Computed example of a mutant assay.
Amino acid sequence: MRGLDLRYFVRRISMFFLVVFVAASFNFVIPRLAPGNPIGAITSRMANASAGIENGQAMFEAYRKRFGLDEPIYIQYGRYMWNTIRFDFGQSLSAYPADVSEIVRPAIGWSMGLIGVSVLITFALGVTIGALLAWRGTPRMVKAVLPITMIGGVLPYYLLAMLLLYIFAFTARVLPMSGAYDSGIRPELSGAYIGTIARHAVLPALSIILTSVGGWALTMRGLMVNTIGEDYMLLADAKGLPKRRILWWYSVRNAIPPQVVHLGIVLGYVVSGAILVEIVFSYPGLGYQLYQAIVNSDYTVIQGITLILAVSVALCVLIIDLIYPRLDPRVTYVAESSG
């Protein structure tokens, strides 16, 4: 690949696996440093629900043995790392005997559908708005209207989510308040099912898009300002090329690589979901499942979700790092790795 040699490629792959190993190790340690006992929390909830548990201590010990929490910490760590290599996250503590994968797999799909699409729409809008704000040929009326799109950036997305929820769900009642689809709709590939998914995704997606598009636009505007005065821009103008072609094929094309890098990193966080937005709208994504796992002290689900997040971010950074010489020919890793 242009701008990339084998030594650098191998080094980056090795660094990726090292990052995943360190992340997995922290993922094992950090939940166990938190106060409280997950098995104690489970038996306590069971006792409260049934006004007491007969032979509660025996049940407590049986749960600890079943999940391997009665063994030394180094044995737990070794078993955890071996299971992680096999993508076996075990069974949920709070939803036993459900496997962690049964909880995580559908949640990943919901988060990627909602957050992924929202991020891509935000990226496209932000790049377009930023480019038009910096371009001298943009009509004054358009330049006066476009900054309005950045107003949402002053609010955290969860506050805007609650505001949208109050206006469109509680007051106007034109959009649903929570969930991913209507309860009376069968989850199958049909127009009605797709339609209700889209309606439920409007408010969560708007809360993310409206609060994020301003940042993308401002960054793109700054990058465009740096490219407008370059020699290749003056040459393109001297050739008499159409203004639209100069804007998109010369200015935007050369200003956008840093934005693509940022997009890749942001997409790495997509699988985690927008936790607070998913909580506000009770959207069954991975962020909402992570919140429920934390509330219930469910070690196995917490470990599974956070490890997926760490691997996805590391993988996106790796991919962007390897393809960046293709995005920007000025960047090369050959000299660095061969020297």
Rank of each mutant, 00 (worst) to 15 (best):
G3H: 06
D5G: 10
R12A: 13
F26P: 00
F28R: 07
F28T: 09
V29D: 09
V29P: 07
P35A: 13
I42W: 05
A49V: 04
G56H: 11
A58V: 14
E61H: 12
R66Y: 12
L69M: 13
P72Q: 13
Y74F: 14
I75G: 04
G78T: 10
Y80K: 01
M81D: 08
M81G: 10
R86V: 07
D99V: 02
V117N: 00
L133M: 15
A134I: 04
W135P: 04
R140N: 09
R140G: 13
V154R: 03
Y157M: 11
Y158P: 02
Y158N: 05
L163T: 06
F168M: 10
G179W: 05
D182N: 13
R186C: 00
P187R: 02
E188K: 08
G191K: 02
A192G: 03
A192P: 02
S212W: 08
V225P: 04
N226H: 11
T227F: 14
M233Q: 10
K239H: 09
V252S: 02
V261G: 08
I265T: 12
G268Q: 09
S272W: 00
G273R: 01
I275C: 00
I279T: 02
Y283L: 01
Y288W: 09
Q289D: 03
N296L: 07
N296M: 08
S297P: 03
D298L: 06
I305D: 03
I305L: 06
Y324N: 04
V334S: 06
V334P: 05
E336K: 08
G339N: 08
